[in-house]
């Protein structure tokens, strides 16, 4: 069967799991990355997604240059002001420019997406790879560890972890966001670890690995040259789909006030703050929600495109 959609968004981890297992089975010997790129470029939605992501990333990086005002600047007397030439997206409850805050908010949303996936990748590679290659006992131990982590309710466990880390020095980094990113990563690696393990286990019995072994290649060489590259494509797809899921998780936590510290801007938190005035004006909620939706869909489209491009069976 082929999967046409894979958001993993409602609950990072739980939903995507069978699909990821499916993806694990989909791995195969492909080395023609150029081929995949060609297929990706053919997918119009994926290209749009990639372009939008690039634009958002550029906005995030060059926020100080393109933002009309500093995100923390207050305009006294212009509280929840409507749309105007000087404030194209209006202002919020504190009298800050919404456009500036949407631009700066991209830093957090993209940051959480990328950073969380990095944490997830590192842990999943160690655990999944270790389980697949470390022998019977390491496999049993590491897989039981993933069982335990899997059993924790994700979002609620993130809150608990965040509260624990809030008391440490880490809380000072990135205006409180670091601990949230870290906590989301710390509970989100289970499915990827299982995916990597499954992928590597199946690769071990493939003809070309057996052939490489027969030719006397070292274990390290087999892992680095053959197994890792062939594990890469489902991992890339999983990570791409993981980004919007992490962004939603962070936005949800931020919505209930966990993580972000004022005057930093964050889309989830902007929506929460906007809710304080939503009956007076919808704009403080509208723009960050729109930004969130665009980012989310962009990664979705790119993920769809990547999966189709990297999985030859769907051609």
């Amino acid at each position: 069967m082929a999967q046409d959609g894979l958001t993993g968004a409602t609950t990072p981890g739980t939903i995507a799991q069978p699909v990821l297992q499916e993806l694990a089975r989909a791995g195969g010997g492909r080395s023609l990355w150029g081929d995949a790129l060609h297929r990706l470029v053919q997918n119009r939605l994926a290209v749009v997604g990639a372009i939008l992501i690039t634009l958002i990333a550029l906005a995030a990086v060059f926020a100080p240059l393109i933002s009309p005002y500093p995100y923390q600047r207050i305009f006294p007397g212009q509280i929840i002001a409507g749309l105007s030439a000087s404030h194209p997206f209006g202002t919020n409850l504190a009298g800050q420019d919404t456009l500036a805050r949407v631009i700066y908010g991209a830093r957090n949303s993209l940051g959480v997406g990328v950073f969380v996936q990095f944490v997830i990748l590192v842990i999943a590679l160690v655990v999944g790879g270790g389980a697949a290659l470390g022998g019977k006992y390491a496999d049993a131990l590491l897989m039981r560890l993933t069982d335990v982590v899997y059993a924790f309710p994700d979002l609620l466990f993130v809150i608990l972890l965040q509260q624990v880390l809030a008391g440490t020095r880490l809380a000072a980094y990135m205006g409180g966001l670091f601990v949230v990113f870290f906590a989301i990563g710390l509970v989100g690696w289970v499915n990827l670890a299982r995916l990597i393990r499954g992928q590597m286990l199946s690769l071990r019995t493939t003809d070309y690995v057996i052939a490489a072994e027969a030719l006397g290649a070292t274990r390290l060489r087999i892992v680095v040259r053959h197994m890792l590259p062939n594990t890469l494509s489902p991992v890339i797809v999983a990570l791409t789909f993981g980004v919007p899921s992490a962004i939603f998780t962070e936005a949800a936590l931020s919505f209930i006030g966990i993580g972000i510290q004022p005057p930093l801007a964050d889309w989830g938190n902007m929506i929460y703050d906007g809710y304080g005035a939503v009956l007076a004006t919808p704009w403080p909620i509208f723009f960050p929600a729109l930004a969130l939706a665009i980012t989310f869909l962009s990664f979705q489209f790119l993920g769809d495109g990547l999966r189709d491009a990297l999985d030859p069976r769907t051609r």
Binding site: T10, T11, T14, I15, P18, V19, P153, D154, L155, F255
Partner: peptide, 16 residues
């Protein structure tokens, strides 16, 4: 087969 994890996610993730 997806309904199981979805139900679990909805049961444990409805706090917002």
């Amino acid at each position: 087969t997806l309904i199981g994890p979805i139900a679990a996610g909805l049961l444990t993730g409805s706090f917002i």
